[in-house]
Design a protein around this nucleic acid. Structure first.
Lengths: 331, 331
DNA sequence: GTGAAAGCGCTAACAG
DNA sequence: CTGTTAGCGCTTTCAC
């Protein structure tokens, strides 16, 4: 394959140690020998063997990223930033998708640990104390960019507050009847723990809290797969004008599409608001009102914190990144 | 960290070789000792050290994936499949984004080779003989899922044919004036080579070939950043009704948006067709006519071929995957 | 069926 | 400033 430091040492009539010093910019070597070694390395197309280096150093300079999938716009944007930000700091990213399957997730994490990644960015499918204990038993820094796990470092918007504010915003637009749509809330765990829907759950709580502390509002909750049909009949029943608030723009888009197909016009017949503001919303007409946050900031902060943890620094458990309401035309 | 085979060997009073046999299901070991070893491994939460294993075996069971970015819908879908398909076969994927920067690309490839990935999936930014030689000098299997490089394995649709057929389809819808939009064609290389726009180029050729072999058509080409403004004025000039054919749905969407903002209605005022059919088109109204292909098939075939190459098998250079015209309502 | 030993390529600690 | 040595943890070959 490629030449090794041993061979370079022989060619240059020096020792392996000296070659190491020259090639890795370590001190304690004369300019002349350094140059000689660097030149021969170049001449013979030397490529450092990072696997050997990792084994010896005990650091792999790689991190694992485990997400539900890359089809969700938000995750792919996030992966893009993470991959870039990590590389800027010398780390490569293994990206694996769990497909929201707890077994896959476990298997992926095991594998990443076996590969001795230095840290993991994880959007957890699973939750529960048993799972957290197990995660901790991996003895590796973990940061979650979404679903929170108590005791695990976490970087995201403040879901509760964001949802609370959003309902206020919807109310400000004149709606008194709010329907929160959050299909995943329905999910039950398969094995041991239950699915982790922490973010979604917090958003739901934020909504509920607003309703409970502000008189005059009616509140519905759609948490099943049939949310589209249900929403359509709610609009058709048409007592008060209703605003649908989706826990993710994945659902906002689906609902928007269904409404259009059913001849329901937004905002004429109902209000619509979502969460996440993925870039594809730019192409949707009318502009969808949604809670917007900077993936860029989130991605960079996630890496930031993970690298600090890897370096052994102590970091606060939770970092909230800013969010704002993107004022569209669907309310 | 985790217990090692050496320690297991001591605990079980056997040799490291025997532990290896037990833990890796190799032959030449009694059922009893195997069980003993497996049980102690489990008891002490043994996790194989894949870095050490890689060093010793000379295979890292990982592959590198280098794409422009993950913001392009098509690439993120592709990455998702690739990551999944690879894992099913025991490989993990390093995903890195070049941001269409030749220097990043080179650096990433170097790094991947240093990490001793077993193979690389590459969407090349660069082109030219020098670059290809260099790639080959890496002595590692490479498969490209888009831009073709002569001599490098390649899996994609037949861009030339697809474009040729598409223009035929547009013609069938009554248009005689075709404008092909392909902004990247403009790009000049930064260092040494020129940017690789092979797919785009083939699509452009397909269009041209149709025009040249079928009388009665007029043909324009927009290859600059200002394609939106140009397109708008072409429509406004409005001699014959014109169909815009975009080399990628990234541009189709942008153009669609611009038209809408400018009060140009599709297909009333102009025709529109694209390439790639990313899943977000599902949410756009009216349905955009585009060339559709299965990312799923492409992703799986890319992995398939790469793994064959890694295994040392010989595989034909080029594999075309099927494409079809997704009949929308924009013509 | 099992053990011993050499080695993958690089790093680090200690001598000189 | 440079050389030597002993690993990192696993695999593999060859004896017994």
């Amino acid at each position: 394959m490629s030449i090794t430091t041993k061979e370079i040492a022989e060619i240059c009539h020096v020792s392996r140690g000296t070659v190491d010093r020259a090639l890795n910019g370590r001190a304690g070597i004369s300019g002349a020998t350094r140059k000689l070694i660097q030149d021969t390395a170049e001449k013979y197309h030397y490529r450092p063997h990072l696997i050997a280096s990792s084994l010896s150093r005990g650091k792999s300079m790689s991190i694992g990223v485990v997400l539900f999938d890359l089809n969700n716009r938000y995750f792919s944007q996030l992966s893009n930033i993470i991959s870039l930000a990590a590389r800027e700091r010398g780390y490569f990213t293994y990206i694996a998708v769990s497909e929201k399957d707890p077994d896959s997730e476990t298997q992926i994490l095991q594998n990443l640990v076996s590969r001795r990644v230095d840290g993991i960015i994880l959007l957890p499918v699973t939750q529960g104390t048993k799972y957290i204990r197990w995660l901790e038993s991996l003895e590796i820094p973990v940061v979650t960019p979404g679903n929170h796990l108590p005791g695990i470092h976490h970087v995201s918007i403040n879901d509760f507050d964001a949802a609370f504010e959003s309902v206020g915003y919807i109310g400000g637009a004149g709606y008194r009847r709010i329907c929160f749509i959050c299909p995943p809330l329905r999910k039950k765990g398969a094995l041991g723990g239950t699915y982790n829907i922490m973010s979604q759950d917090l958003r739901a709580r934020g909504v509920k809290h607003f309703i409970e502390t502000n008189p005059g509002y009616t509140y519905d909750l759609l948490i099943k797969k049939d949310y589209r049909e249900k929403a359509v009949s709610m609009v058709r029943a048409g007592k008060d004008k209703i605003a649908f608030f989706c826990s993710s723009d994945v659902y906002t888009l689906e609902l928007f599409k269904t409404f259009r197909e059913q001849g329901i016009e937004i905002p004429r017949d109902a209000g619509l608001m979502g969460f996440d503001n993925p870039d594809i919303l730019d192409f949707i007409q009318p502009r969808i009102t949604t809670v917007s946050t900077s993936v860029e900031i989130q991605g960079r902060e996630v890496i930031n914190i993970l690298l600090k943890l890897i370096a052994g620094e102590t970091v606060p458990d939770t970092l909230y990144i800013p969010h704002e309401i993107c004022r569209g035309k669907t309310l």
